[in-house]
């Protein structure tokens, strides 16, 4: 066991994967000598060489397109998109190609690309270094969408992504890249996709979150506990495939649900979570499902603290549910 942050856990996972599987290659802008702008690929080029750790020209479409080609041929490419905000030049490749190759070929071609990309606000990144576009990927059939919240989860889940045969959008919560620390096994291990985690038990209100917002939800639970309000916190962990059972079981237990995410409310992933929970636990619900989300505005710079959900907003939403 070593204490690691999320960046180190991801680097550790990539190192394991590249060591044990020749098919794994890393490509992206600045991933080689520089080790990535967040340093997730630090040291890989020294260990595995420039043919497997590829510094590409500056084009997200090119990075993802090339990764798809490599995967078609039988490699296991891990493409880094520097910020999720910049992924859109590659969106066509993701939506039209990566997600659909298996289906359109009748299963004769597969496309096991992992696209890693940091997302989310709270780093004073303004409009273009802060967004949370997860629902734009969760909406696309053929993609898996994974968002870890802890170093242990990040390493185990990235390794799990590299062991399966579907394309994955692996979104990394950059606000807690270094802040979230924890014990991580030194050896390789996997955390299965499609399983949510109950990260805190509570009787009164279920708070559903993923990524950095899990930490905010835990903070809210501490805050609420001071007044005797018990929040149960669920970390969704994989948006696709979604672990409906864990969500519905918790909703049935507490009868009240609040969903928290950074992305704007309208058509955010919270809408899907809300509908899914309502379908599964309708008769158990004591209050409307609450959503604590980013605003339906572009992401601001100076006032980002007002845009981002914080613990107090989650607690307020939980109280609303209690008082409904």
């Amino acid at each position: 066991m070593t204490t690691m942050n999320i960046i180190q856990a991801i680097g550790s996972a990539l190192g394991h994967a590249m060591e044990t599987d020749d098919r794994v290659v890393v490509l992206g802008e600045d991933v080689g000598k520089f080790g990535g702008v967040f340093r997730a690929t630090l040291g890989l080029i020294e260990r595995f060489g420039a043919e497997r750790v590829i510094d590409t020209p500056l084009s997200e479409g090119g990075i993802i397109g090339a990764a798809i080609g490599m995967a078609l041929y039988g490699m296991r490419p891990v493409a880094e998109i520097q910020f999720a905000d910049f992924i859109f030049p590659g969106y066509d490749q993701i939506v039209s190609e990566m997600a659909k190759l298996r289906y359109r070929s009748g299963g004769h071609f597969t496309c096991p690309v992992v696209v890693r990309t940091p997302y989310g606000g709270g780093i004073r990144g303004g409009l273009y270094h802060s967004q949370s576009p997860e629902s734009l990927f969760a909406h696309i059939s053929g993609l898996k969408v994974v968002i870890p919240s802890t170093p242990h989860d990040a390493k185990g889940r990235l390794l799990a992504c590299l062991e399966q045969d579907d394309p994955v959008i692996f979104m990394e919560p950059k606000r807690v890249y270094r802040a979230a620390r924890g014990e991580v096994p030194d050896e390789a291990y996997t955390v299965p996709l499609g399983k949510a985690a109950t990260v805190r038990d509570g009787r009164h209100v279920t708070v559903v979150a993923y990524g950095a917002m899990v930490h905010t939800a835990l903070e809210a639970a501490e805050l609420a506990a001071k007044d005797g309000l018990e929040l149960e916190v669920i970390d969704v962990r994989t948006l696709v495939p979604l672990d409906v059972d864990t969500l519905v079981a918790s909703a049935k237990k507490t009868g009240r649900v609040v969903i928290a995410h950074e992305a704007p409310r309208t058509c955010g992933y919270g809408a899907e979570l809300s509908a899914t929970i309502a379908e599964g636990a309708f008769l158990w619900l004591e209050a409307p499902i609450g959503r604590v989300t980013g605003l339906d505005t572009p992401f601001p710079h100076t006032l980002e603290h007002a845009y981002l959900p914080d613990a107090s907003r989650i607690v307020a939403a939980a109280r609303d549910a209690m008082e409904f």
Binding site: I54, G61, G62, I64, G65, A66, A67, I68, G69, M70, A71, L72, Y73, G74, M75, P77, D92, Q93, S96, E97, K100, L101, R104, S105, G106, H108, F109
Partner: peptide
């Protein structure tokens, strides 16, 4: 297998070639 999108196959061809 062809997709109807235009030119997406070319960056993929680079990827195949790199592999």
């Amino acid at each position: 297998t062809l997709s109807s999108n235009i030119a997406t196959q070319l960056t993929q061809a680079v990827g195949v070639a790199l592999a």
